[in-house]
Simulated scan of single mutants.
Amino acid sequence: MQDPRHPGIVAEPIAQGQLTVMAPVGTWSDAECAQPLDAAGLTGELIGLADNDPLGEMVLASCEAQGITPVFHTVVQTYQIARSLVEAGAGTAVLDPFTAASANAAKVQCRIWAPAMPVQLYLLTASHAPLSHGARELANCIGATARACLERGCQ
């Protein structure tokens, strides 16, 4: 989900979604779920990402730009752990749309982050070695699956 901007690596965007706030089911009304959530709306037990994580840095920068300093009660190393904690009812997390869309919709609610922040899913390949036909087909399938997952979304 990050372009390494390295001369030996080609980063090809294959899917794009919006930064997403995920909370345990029942946190927001249906009307609230239809509205984006900004940093001021982050309340309760917050689950944060590690300081050196690019997505975590993006969330913190967005909060600071809105004049908010979030207090994370739990800090995790992976997006999947944050998702699992939200599914278990342990708090709220701001995550990439791909992890959010893979959550158990019966256990979580999602809202788009405000201001909207796009998150890309990249296919990384060596710049000196083009993909074989089979590898290109696999990459196309991965992109299509990611886009379909985003269409189903986290409701």
Score class of each variant (00 low, 15 high):
residue 114 A to H: 05
residue 119 V to S: 08
residue 40 A to G: 12
residue 113 W to Q: 09
residue 109 Q to M: 02
residue 121 L to E: 11
residue 76 V to Y: 04
residue 83 R to S: 13
residue 91 G to S: 05
residue 79 Y to G: 14
residue 109 Q to S: 00
residue 73 H to N: 14
residue 40 A to R: 14
residue 78 T to P: 08
residue 40 A to F: 03
residue 40 A to D: 09
residue 88 A to F: 03
residue 52 N to D: 15
residue 99 T to K: 08
residue 108 V to C: 00
residue 119 V to C: 10
residue 44 G to I: 05
residue 74 T to A: 10
residue 84 S to N: 12
residue 67 G to L: 07
residue 49 L to T: 11
residue 106 A to Y: 00
residue 40 A to V: 05
residue 102 S to E: 15
residue 73 H to D: 13
residue 97 P to R: 06
residue 69 T to I: 12
residue 63 C to S: 09
residue 71 V to E: 13
residue 93 A to V: 11
residue 110 C to P: 09
residue 121 L to V: 13
residue 54 P to C: 07
residue 97 P to Q: 08
residue 108 V to G: 00
residue 49 L to D: 09
residue 114 A to M: 00
residue 101 A to T: 10
residue 65 A to Y: 06
residue 68 I to G: 01
residue 124 L to W: 11
residue 118 P to K: 06
residue 50 A to T: 14
residue 54 P to M: 04
residue 64 E to L: 14
residue 63 C to T: 09
residue 76 V to K: 08
residue 108 V to L: 00
residue 62 S to I: 08
residue 53 D to W: 05
residue 103 A to G: 11
residue 71 V to Y: 09
residue 115 P to M: 03
residue 78 T to K: 14
residue 47 I to N: 06
residue 56 G to I: 10
residue 110 C to S: 04
residue 87 E to G: 02
residue 58 M to P: 03
residue 39 A to P: 13
residue 78 T to Q: 10
residue 120 Q to F: 12
residue 104 N to F: 00
residue 46 L to G: 07
residue 106 A to V: 01
residue 70 P to R: 04
residue 94 V to E: 01
residue 81 I to H: 13
